[in-house]
Design a protein around this nucleic acid. Structure first.
Lengths: 190, 190
DNA sequence: GTCTATATAATGATAGAC
DNA sequence: GTCTATCATTATATAGAC
């Protein structure tokens, strides 16, 4: 019941800063000093909230998952038509153009990095994908797809990831837009 | 003309070891000690061949580019039909299943990491993609595509990258196979 | 809860003997 | 061309005063 205390504020600031830095610089390339500085917290005080780097990674993943859940709920409330919901998903590429071109997809790049690190939180990070997969699958089911709803959801996610990788490698946000348009056309045929 | 000397052997062993480790562990996560150990070279001796970590990254990128060029030449020699050549490209996903599931695509993951590091060799790494893009574009042109050959090449690359990301995140090589099959069907409609 | 100071290990990189 | 020894820096992590 002490949510307004300085402590909780510091904790949240650390998570927010880590979330941003993990995306921009990568997990392993982000030091405690980087996070502490960005959060405006003394280095030593850091360990009052997070004992290990694994702890803060876990907190960041949980935060991102929560953000995703909230976003999907918003979309579901805003768009009654499942097809419009799927379209909204594709439109991430358009709305996040600038970031994707520079840093790729937050989910995709984190999972890629954790896989190479053979990090214990790898599975947990992949569950961010699962949130999207389940939600997308549900929309495809509402459109009448039974056996292939799951495959369609995974395929749609793969398209977004592929577009993000190429756009990031080439620093080409125009390509991102073309891929988004192409995916929207594909959606109409499904 | 001294290609059989011990020196050149060491240099090549270092490059080969770095190539493998950069793929498996990532560039920044691979230390000089890791490479030296894997190559069977003393840590100090390392600097006789490569002054900085940037130097060895450059050498690895050049090696990978050379491997790609050779592979594309082989494909061109083996398959007279441009459509078969495009199919061969898609089949990478099948042949490299095991590696992709564990470590993703060597090109894609390296470009992603260098982008986050804001590394100077980022552009050079992206030229590995360019080798594929040019070659794929040429095949699409041979199939009669004029204005959209370039876009088709980029789209095909994005598909492979997307499949690799999802397969890596889920450690699911069966998905990789389904995406490969799906892409082959798409190729038939182009 | 917040801070300074510090321990400890690993990193990229150098110097110099052989 | 190969090696050992070492420097400077940075990283994660801890101790303890306030």
């Amino acid at each position: 019941m002490d949510m307004g205390s300085k402590g909780e504020h510091s904790r949240q600031r650390i998570i927010d800063a880590a979330d941003r830095l993990f995306y921009i610089k990568g997990f392993n390339q982000t030091s405690f000093s980087d996070i502490a500085e960005a959060a405006g917290v003394a280095r030593g005080n850091f360990y009052y909230y997070f004992k290990t780097k694994d702890d803060i990674l876990q907190a960041v993943i949980e935060k991102r998952a929560e953000d995703i859940r909230r976003m999907l709920e918003d979309w579901e409330a805003s768009y009654p038509d499942p097809r419009d919901r799927l379209r909204r998903y594709v439109t991430i590429l358009t709305k996040e153009q600038q970031h994707i071109e520079k840093f790729g997809c937050p989910m995709g790049t984190l999972c890629t990095e954790l896989a190479k690190l053979r990090h214990a939180r790898q599975t947990q990070a992949a569950e961010m994908f699962e949130l999207f997969r389940c939600w997308l699958e549900k929309q495809f089911r509402l459109l009448g797809h039974k056996d292939d709803a799951r495959d369609l959801a995974l395929h749609l996610m793969a398209r977004e990831q592929g577009a993000a990788i190429i756009a990031n490698a080439y620093h080409d946000s125009a390509f991102l837009q073309r891929e988004a348009d192409d995916t929207l056309r594909w959606l109409d045929t499904v």
